[in-house]
Amino acid sequence: MNALPQIMVTGLTLGALYAVATLGLSLIWASLRFLNLAHGAMLAVGGYAAFAVATNFGLSGPLAFLAAMAFGALMGWATFWGLVRPILDTRDFETNILIVTIGLSIILENGLLQIFGGQPYGQPVSVPGALALAGIRFPIQNMVIVLSAITIVLAVSLLLRWTRIGLALRACAQDRDAAALMGLPVTALFSATMALAGALTAASGVMISSITQLSPLLGDDPMLKAFIMCVLAGLGNIGGAIASAFLLAIVEVMAEFYFASRWGFPTLLFLVIAVLIWKPNGLFSGREVQRL
């Protein structure tokens, strides 16, 4: 039997998941120029938030999904004011923020462990069933994931491209000082960016946990892959990150199918190292990368 169609189905689903996971990370890098190492923990918190409201308050799937996104936005907003703002303009911000977000990540993951325990849960926010078409199995959940991912990515690009707030966010990312001099409320816009990134991160956490399982460490692996995609595309290049999310997901699934599942991730890494030696600024870097 030809496995290629099935590989493409799995690869596209994974690509959609990675694209949304990458989006939050890439937004923060593009505007605030720091790497959020708590990204994985925030993914997990998003997944658990949907789980908690769905089981405790009996919210339906889409509502629980939105509740998780709202919680993620709140988390991103609080992170900005509590942790990022105090050290934003200090020397060594770039490395200090790595340490701070590692700390946040440890606290969030262990907090989840204390509250929910280490045993894995199934994500209640999901759609069972599958369609069979020409001998290929399409689980409905995968189709929902791909559709919501496309919706989210489109919505974010439209927001950034065509709205006033999107224009303001892009101006901030391009030149912070000039934007402030033109009268833009830079700090408020930064906190809005982090809230948006938090919401996207939580959404991706719900989606990832719906095809795997809920565990406090569920976000670590997607985070690492989101990093790799950002690096491959050139940090801060959002369109490139989404393209490389799909590219790498298909490469990974093929490597897992044709070699062995344990070689999927190493293959990705070697690919990225090769790209970095060949094009240190990323695969899609032209002379000037538009950051947001």
């Binding site: 050290i87 060594d92 340490i99 701070v100 700390g103 907090g111 204390q114």
Partner: peptide
């Protein structure tokens, strides 16, 4: 809670005493 303690140290150290 030991891990959380380490997290708090990492979180606060760069903010309080750089």
């Amino acid at each position: 809670a030991q891990q959380i303690g380490i997290g708090v140290i990492l979180l606060l150290a760069p903010i309080l005493f750089r």
